Lab assay of single mutants.
Amino acid sequence: WVPTKREEKYGVAFYNYDARGADELSLQIGDTVHILETYEGWYRGYTLRKKSKKGIFPASYIHLKE
């Protein structure tokens, strides 16, 4: 896992994603996520609506905010 280059990196989910394991994070369309790390097509972070739950999710489900 590699920390993100920018201190504040955010994105928005444009697909729903159902977590398949305890380390994964479920997403709903429109969720804003804070991205902490990246690795081979995956991000690690949390949604702003539930900051206490961190997990991994596919990068392809996220539109990055500039």
Rank of each mutant, 00 (worst) to 15 (best):
G41Y: 05
K5D: 14
L25M: 04
Y39K: 15
H63R: 14
V2D: 08
W1Y: 07
G30V: 04
A59W: 05
N16I: 06
V33K: 00
N16Y: 06
I56W: 15
Y61C: 15
K65C: 15
E8K: 09
A59G: 05
Q28I: 12
G30P: 00
Q28Y: 08
D31Y: 05
W1D: 07
R20Q: 12
Y43D: 01
K5F: 09
G41D: 07
Y17G: 01
D23S: 08
P3L: 04
K54R: 12
K9I: 10
I56Q: 04
L48R: 05
K54I: 15
K51I: 10
H63A: 11
V12M: 06
A19S: 06
P3N: 06
G45K: 00
G55S: 02
V2S: 09
K53I: 11
G21Y: 08
K51A: 11
G55L: 03
V33P: 00
I35K: 00
G21P: 02
S52W: 14
L64I: 12
W1E: 07
R49A: 12
K53E: 11
Q28T: 11
E37W: 06
Y43N: 00
W42H: 01
Y39W: 12
L48W: 07
N16A: 13
Q28S: 10
Y43L: 03
E8T: 09
N16W: 08
G45E: 03
L48T: 09
D23T: 06
R6F: 11
H34R: 15
E66F: 12
R44K: 09
L36T: 08
E66P: 14
E66W: 12
R20C: 09
G55R: 01
H63Y: 10
K54L: 14
Y10R: 06
P3M: 02
R6G: 13
Y10Q: 05
I35R: 00
R20P: 03
E37F: 08
H63Q: 13
L27K: 02
R49D: 12
Q28N: 10
V2I: 13
Y39A: 10
K54A: 08
K53V: 12
L48H: 10
E7I: 10
G45R: 03
K5H: 11
K51H: 09
L48G: 05
Y10F: 11
K5M: 10
R44S: 05
R6T: 11
F14N: 08
G30H: 03
S60R: 14
A19W: 01
Q28H: 11
Y39F: 13
V2T: 11
K51V: 11
R20A: 08
Y39P: 01
E37I: 06
R6I: 11
E24G: 03
G41C: 08
L64P: 04
R6N: 12
D18L: 11
G21D: 09
G11Q: 04
I35Q: 00
H34D: 00
H34P: 00
S52G: 11
Y17W: 08
K9P: 03
K65N: 11
S26Q: 05
G21S: 14
A13Y: 03
F14M: 15
T47F: 05
R49Y: 13
K5I: 09
K50F: 12
D31R: 02
